[in-house]
């Protein structure tokens, strides 16, 4: 549980966060019941910070919370809105505004080759082939992973998969990106690459993680416990509360 303990004591320098526009994510008594069970209790809050961490034990409601933001899941009670647009009623207008990096990024790369996969996400957005190709190479370059363009998805390592999935999301230009355990199963080097890449993004990030040092310097951390928001505080405070909850 406390993977924190296994990280080396020496910290490396993180690049300064870039400043960008932030989306206002608003929960209005939004909750989810599923099969007669409450997965997420009705929750009211407003998130406009640029770096938001989400922590909690397995099955505490973290992923449900994140899925509500992207409209992958509709609230069974209340409503969720992004910049005033309802995730259910205005789903059309919101499409493309958020991106989601899933826990297992291997499953979100749909086309055989990285650049093909990225380009596929741009189809039907009124861009011609040349514009799509340009957007793909620009995005890969901005992440410093141009060498991945013609690689086959099934040959990528864990860290490369994570970056390829991120590239495929970034190329479509979302304002908010949700990352579900982005450093899960990565070795230390790849973890650092992902951490540094995240730090360089100008978008609003909502990061679900068991990797607590990753949330250092975040604006706000939400702790979920048994389907309820148990803490909403700066990282140190929320993590301290998490330690109490998690003690066996």
């Amino acid at each position: 549980m406390f993977r924190l303990l296994f990280y080396p004591a020496t910290r490396y320098k993180r690049p300064e966060l870039l400043r960008g526009q932030s989306v206002d994510i608003r929960f209005e008594a939004a909750g989810v019941d599923f099969g007669g069970r409450t997965v997420l209790e009705p929750l009211t809050l407003s998130l406009s910070q640029r770096r938001i961490g989400v922590i909690g034990l397995n099955g505490s409601g973290k992923s449900t919370f994140a899925r509500l933001i992207t409209g992958l899941l509709n609230p069974t009670r209340g409503a969720v809105a992004l910049d005033g647009l309802d995730t259910v009623k205005d789903a059309g207008a919101l499409s493309g505004r958020t991106g989601y990096i899933f826990q297992n990024p291997a499953n979100q790369i749909i086309m055989p080759v990285v650049a093909e996969d990225m380009e596929f996400g741009l189809k039907g957005r009124g861009m011609d082939k040349a514009a799509r190709a340009a957007a793909v190479s620009r995005t890969l370059e901005s992440l410093g992973v141009s060498h991945l363009a013609s690689r086959r998805a099934h040959e990528l390592s864990g860290g490369e998969l994570q970056l390829a999935a991120l590239a495929a999301v970034l190329v479509t230009g979302p304002d908010t990106i949700i990352l579900d355990e982005p450093t899960n199963q990565l070795d230390l080097k790849n973890r650092r690459v992902v951490e540094q890449t995240m730090a360089g993004l100008s978008q609003q990030l909502v990061v679900i993680s068991h990797d607590l040092p990753l949330l250092d310097g975040f604006d706000r951390v939400l702790l979920f416990h048994e389907g309820r928001l148990a803490a909403d505080a700066p990282p140190a405070e929320a993590i301290a509360r998490y330690m109490e909850i998690a003690s066996p």
Partner: peptide
């Protein structure tokens, strides 16, 4: 299920 969720999330 996961692949389908990813396809929908990416609006493909």
């Amino acid at each position: 299920d996961q692949i389908a969720a990813a396809i929908d999330a990416r609006g493909l």
